[in-house]
Design a protein around this nucleic acid. Structure first.
Length: 821
RNA sequence: GGGGGAGUGUCGGAAUGGCAGACGAGCAUGACUUAGGAUCAUGUGCCGCAAGGCGUGGGGGUUCAAAUCCCCCCUUCCCCA
């Protein structure tokens, strides 16, 4: 028997599988389909162990489903447009296309070394014209459907880099990720997708099996609040506006308003401020400008503000209330003004206390005795001090007051969302061009479908000017209007790369389709049965992809409304107790481990180091443990077995029964763990089986056929986790290629059942003894046997047994009262 | 501040109301060996000579029985503001 040399085995089988097209997928409908998708990687350069952590276990699951008889699609591709490619161009003078394709080449080879069942003939690369042609097409479709529009919007702007930044590039306390300059805002004409049209539907996750946490994040992201927008009358000589509008979810408390607060940046502030307050107000506005939003909204920080000297009138009761400014009110959120009800809002309460503003109770807590509140009462209660609404439960008051406000034209019930439309314009080169032409005569004209793709010109210059590099490529910009054939100009912004990743799963299902973005094969494969990836995409990619599919559904292009039926988020893998990052220099590259210990050891270790959803720490001694296990397996499976002929057949029958039981129990455990993606305990179960079989081999009690059967079962169970080693075993033990085309072993409940169980005996819930009994033992027999045990007798003494608890096959618990001695 | 996780031996973790610590790492002792970061065997939660007692971040509760369910607190990670 030769030694286990994973390097050779890896290469040998990877070559063979590729040659035989073993993992090529077709739309064979004789088997149930299973679409297992892993989020595709960004083409950053090389694959680190984090990528393996995302991909190896999902490959194991896909392989398992394949052996279970499903027609499995488990594709791979590359998210290839994006900023880093452009930065590389600026920094090192390499063209983004060259940089990206080189990275893909490298990453593809690394991926191949993992031994996954990716069908490379279905690969999708988002930066190639054959792909982004259809990304552009989707833009046109959304435009036709009225879901794409152009409008002015503030964008993040770094004054030092002279460039627009994506939200993700604004880090920490609002600074540029590259130069750490504080980011400012600029107003630019931008393209948006009307994702807010789907706000309500985006909060629903009916019929899909997603982690609660992600669903909650998405609901919070939509941030629906039902309330009323109402106005306060303003009568100020210097101001045209005759009212200030506020939004509240608690119209039942409007009678309790004792002041109003404007955001310091509110356009009315300068006009409203009386001369005597001017200095203080200006000073405060200046100070607020230097605070971050986090500081401003933190409830730990004491709220401060200043009085403007102006007043507004509460229309419900005619009371004049002072107008303050405070930085806990943000202009960007809501109307930039809030009505303050200190009695029933925590922040308003603190503010009122600090500045000695009146606190007027309008919602009486149950059994309130008219005393001053020591803290804001935010719960429901009975309306008081509220004119004709007095005595009404506050819950009904919300409707009653809203109705009254509406009748008088002082307000309107409104639903407000935190969700904003999706801004897809990027002032960048390395993305799919927005297929729009601006004609002086015809206005905004979409590029006709037949003219797609709008190709990215190769000869752009990458200066960080803050404008799209395409703007300076004259042969790109200058074009003719598709309508009137007059001279016209192209849109020079490109699309957010999340646009590319919002439909790539459709492309995998339609490889080679040149006449459309996708074809009927999508009907066969979609929706994705299991989607796995990091949770960081909760309110970005996963959100956008859902929106996309809903929009396509409404256009009649697909017949389902959710792209991903089941979602699972794996955790993060860390190194040296920290997240891996290039700057920390703790990035683990899998290549060295693969070269030394083989792909199977890396795969198995990643599964074994902890629960997949928790992630964990990479650790060199940990992988050596797994590697040792594979070496032990090598010996166990390939060394000759010889039955110990001196044993009688009763012993050997018993041993065979036990072995069969262990096998069936392991099949059950491993199958269950693979279904629920609990890879760590699956590997542990396989290790246990290995240890068990090693002992059985030594005793040599079972027949040759029983041994062969046990070995084969082990190899089959191992096949998804360690595909190379299992294939080698399969060949060397004389089976027909390939192990990966075999059926997944089934267990029989009858054979997995224990014949003997260990019964635990407790006295008053404390463990006192345990002994083996037949699994079929009756309650009375079990109790009787327990009472006869010496240790139990000693514990019980002459005390009185009040109650006996029996859990079948598990334990007997005697509840006793000790006699006083 | 709000929302969501997590806290168990020396370490990664297992057990989701019923034997706490599966599996692996580490450590210890022994075997084999010229040698060992190899392999094999045995042991390994803590206190105790033992009988026994204690033990799942801390405190309280429910239960015959709690790592697991409930309440309060502490620590920590992630997301949002």
């Amino acid at each position: 028997m030769s030694d286990y040399s994973p390097q050779e085995i890896d290469k040998k089988w990877q070559r063979r599988w590729a040659l035989d097209k073993l993992y090529q997928v077709n739309e064979d409908s004789t088997k149930p389909k299973y679409y297992a998708l892993t989020m595709f990687p960004y083409t950053s350069g090389d694959l680190h162990i984090g990528h393996w952590y995302a991909m190896a276990p999902s490959d194991v699951h896909a392989r398992f489903k394949r052996m279970q008889g499903y027609n499995v699609l488990h594709p791979m591709g590359f998210d290839a447009f994006g900023l880093p490619a452009e930065n590389a161009a600026i920094k090192r003078g390499i063209h983004p296309h060259v940089w990206t394709m080189k990275n893909i080449e490298n990453m593809r080879n690394q991926l191949k070394s993992m031994g996954a069942i990716y069908d490379w003939s279905r690969e999708a690369i988002t930066c190639l014209p054959e792909y982004y042609k259809w990304t552009e097409w989707f833009f046109l479709k959304l435009y036709e459907a009225g879901l794409a529009y152009r409008g002015k919007a503030p964008v993040n702007w770094c004054p030092r880099c002279q460039t627009v930044l994506a939200n993700e590039q604004v880090v920490g306390e609002g600074v540029c990720e590259r130069c750490e300059e504080p980011v400012t805002h600029r107003d630019l004409e931008q393209w948006f997708f009307r994702i807010t049209k789907y706000a309500d539907e985006m909060m629903e996750h009916q019929g899909i099996d997603w982690p609660e946490r992600i669903k909650i994040m998405q609901r919070n992201w939509v941030g629906k609040s039902v309330g009323t927008e109402l106005s306060f009358a303003l009568d100020h000589p210097a101001v045209e506006e005759k009212e200030i509008r506020v939004f509240t979810t608690r119209p039942d408390t409007v009678f309790g308003v004792t002041f109003m607060v404007l955001a310091p940046e509110h356009p009315l502030v300068a006009k409203l401020t009386t001369p005597d307050k001017k200095a203080a107000v200006e000073e405060y506005v200046e100070m607020a400008r230097h605070r971050t939003e986090i500081e401003r909204l933190s409830t730990e920080k004491e709220k401060d503000g200043v009085f403007t000297g102006a007043y507004v009138t509460n229309r419900l009761n005619g009371e004049k209330v002072p107008v303050w400014i405070a930085d806990y009110v943000l202009l960007s959120y809501g109307t930039g003004a809030v009505m303050a009800v200190p009695a029933h809002d925590t922040r308003d309460f603190a503010f009122a206390k600090k500045y000695n503003l009146p606190i007027k109770v309008v919602i009486a807590p149950p059994e309130w005795n008219g005393k001053e509140l020591v803290e804001a009462y935010i719960e429901e209660g009975t309306m008081v001090n509220s004119g004709k609404f007095n005595g009404l439960p506050s819950k009904q008051g919300i409707d009653a007051v809203s109705e009254f406000l509406e009748k008088n034209n002082w307000g309107k019930r409104t639903i407000r969302y935190r969700l904003r439309d999706w801004l897809i314009s990027r002032q960048r080169y390395w993305g799919a061009p927005i297929p729009i032409i601006y004609c002086p005569k015809c206005g905004t004209v979409p590029v006709p479908e037949k003219d797609l793709p709008v190709l990215l010109p190769e000869d752009a210059e990458f200066k960080p000017t803050g404008e799209s590099p395409l703007k300076y490529v004259e042969h790109f910009v200058n074009t003719t209007c598709p309508k009137c054939s007059g001279p016209a100009k192209r849109e020079t912004d490109t699309m957010d790369t999340f646009m590319c990743s919002s439909w790539y799963f459709l492309r995998y299902a339609s490889p080679g389709c040149t006449s459309a973005a996708f074809d009927d094969r999508v009907k066969f494969w979609m929706p994705v049965d299991l989607y796995t990836g990091g949770a960081e995409h909760a309110v970005m990619h996963l959100f956008y992809a859902r929106f996309f599919i809903k929009a396509l559904r409404d256009m009649g292009l697909v017949d389902f409304g959710e792209p991903f039926t089941r979602l699972f988020n794996q955790g993060t893998i860390i190194a040296q107790r920290q997240k891996m990052s290039k700057s920390r220099g703790n990035v683990i590259n899998p290549d060295g481990y693969v070269a030394e210990l083989g792909a199977d050891a890396v795969r198995a270790y990643l599964m074994f180091l902890g629960p997949w959803e928790q992630g964990g720490e990479w650790n060199d001694t940990g992988i050596s443990g797994v590697s040792r296990w594979l070496n032990r397996l090598w010996k166990l499976v390939l060394e000759d077995y010889s039955q110990n002929t001196v044993t009688d057949s009763a012993d050997s029958q018993k041993a065979e029964r036990e072995m069969s039981r262990t096998l069936h129990q392991t099949i059950k455990k491993v199958t269950g763990d693979l279904d629920t993606l609990q890879f760590n305990t699956m590997i542990a179960a396989l290790m246990e089986l290995t240890n068990y079989l090693a002992k059985a081999k030594e005793t040599g009690l079972v027949s040759d056929t029983a041994w062969e059967n046990a070995k084969d079962t082990l190899v089959l169970l191992l096949a998804p986790a360690a595909p190379h080693l299992a294939e080698e075993f399969w060949e060397r033990t004389g089976h027909e290629y390939s192990v990966h085309n075999q059926n997944w072993p089934r267990w029989e409940e009858e054979l997995a059942r224990q014949e003997e169980v260990v019964l635990v005996v407790q006295v008053n819930g404390k463990l006192r003894d345990k002994f083996a009994v037949p699994a079929s033992i009756t309650e009375s027999k079990a109790v009787q046997m327990a009472l006869e045990r010496e240790k139990v007798k000693g514990q019980l003494g002459d005390s009185e047994v009040i109650k006996t608890i029996y859990v079948p096959g598990k334990l007997v618990n005697f509840v006793v009262r000790f006699r006083p001695t």
